[in-house]
Design a protein around this nucleic acid. Structure first.
Lengths: 241, 241
DNA sequence: GCAAAAGTGTTCACATTACACCCATGG
DNA sequence: CCATGGGTGTAATGTGAACACTTTTGC
């Protein structure tokens, strides 16, 4: 959570800054990206002595004049250079001793970005994209936060078409399937996958082909936001037994 | 959120208590119960002047030495007299001006209890069970919190067998169906409902009948926790397309 | 021509839905 | 005997899973 922007660093100076300290409130962001067919998350080295050499999520203290959502959006835009983001709150972690510097309650968000569009800024502390599967331990309770967000992501992509935020605007069905397989950690049947995705009516065929692939090029599609919007408008009356 | 236990009341004394105040952290509990075939929620009159005569959720400030989950559990046990509860965190509300007394970030929990087993304590401020459908406006952002928790509940009962927490240990299928219908606000087909519920293997037939009902008595069942536990152990490998 | 991935349909099993009649009890 | 809800089965439809061959491109 605790990475400095231009503001005071909770890691090192919390107690000095707030002698009357009761609670600090922070946000931690699990920023997912997809690259080389692997699901990755944006991490940084902790600068807290207690967690020397451990990876940490990106986060910051919430400022007195900003909301929680606003704070997470700020962390994300500051770090990735992006200004449109899929961002969602997941859970708040408030165990008494979760932060060695004092009582810090942290709300976790996850976010889906296109890695190729990010322009990483404030590059200190080895900011980098890290394969989700390779992460064993982290600073603070960040492994637990990551696991919680990853579980939520897995569930959510099976309910809502948020996954397109991780891809380029134009993509092939193969890329989309690879992404589903990477996140869910399963193998999917190609024919059933195509059938299912087309049946949603959410893909627009661009009548363009992939280029410079070492095999037969696939067609390119794009996510049809308008169709999704129309679909959402027709509320359906709930599941029957 | 802000209902006094024996501790200071955030509503009236926050600023005096914390001159160096940065953030206060609270929990708000949406306590659901089922009575007379209606889904209800436990509410209290707000004692804040700004929300005079508005209904408010039960909540309290989180104490420096207690975790968030612990705080919500405390609020619930203090108020309902129950010590076993289904309790789940839903969302954290952190808009800058959501509380008139200052910056209060509040984490919402929902809870399922058997109304008949509750022994309401600290009865001030018109503490009572209120039909969920009848609530139009509330103090603070509590209507939004209630709506969020209610949506989560609707979704959750279709995924996990938590609904039994709202019933007596022994119940008839009719009572169970009435409860599903009340929460989901739909009519369900009786034969399909029975088929579906029995097929889960989670109901134990007690070989007992209802008594003192003005019609043919139905069989009584109980939720089979052991069967559910065994079922959970067999992890299944994820959804395929 | 070979490697690699694209594109394409059918079958089967299972789950969901719709739907109607007789039965047991209390009053 | 009447009102009320309990208890039961089947057919039609929709959904998910399994599965193999031909085509197109780059090299």
């Amino acid at each position: 959570m605790p990475q400095p922007s231009t503001k005071p660093n909770i890691n090192t100076s919390l107690m000095e800054l707030m002698p009357e300290f009761q609670f600090a409130v922070s946000v931690d962001c699990v920023i997912f990206g997809f690259d080389e067919n692997v699901l990755k998350v944006l991490l940084i080295k902790s600068d807290l002595e207690a967690f020397r050499e451990k990876w940490s999520l990106l986060g910051d203290l919430v400022q007195p004049d900003e909301g929680l959502d606003e704070a997470s959006y700020r962390v994300l835009t500051e770090r990735t250079g992006l200004d449109t983001l899929y961002l969602e709150q997941v859970h708040t972690f408030g165990a008494v001793h979760r932060h060695p510097a004092g009582r810090v309650v942290s709300t976790a968000y996850y976010c889906l970005v296109n890695i190729k569009h990010t322009q990483l800024t404030q590059l200190g502390n080895e900011l980098h994209w890290h394969p989700v599967k390779d992460i064993a331990t982290m600073a603070f309770d960040h492994k637990k936060i990551l696991d919680t967000c990853y579980s939520t992501l897995k569930k959510k992509i099976q309910e809502e078409p948020i996954i397109f935020n991780l891809l380029e605007r134009k993509f092939s069905l193969r890329e989309l399937q690879n992404l589903y397989e990477a996140i869910l950690d399963v193998k999917l049947d190609r024919r059933n996958f195509r059938k299912k995705l087309f049946s949603t009516g959410l893909l627009t065929d661009l009548n363009e082909m992939e280029r410079n692939v070492p095999h037969r090029p696939g067609k390119l599609y794009t996510f049809n936001h308008e169709a999704y919007y129309q679909m959402r408008k027709k509320a359906f009356s709930g599941i029957r037994f």
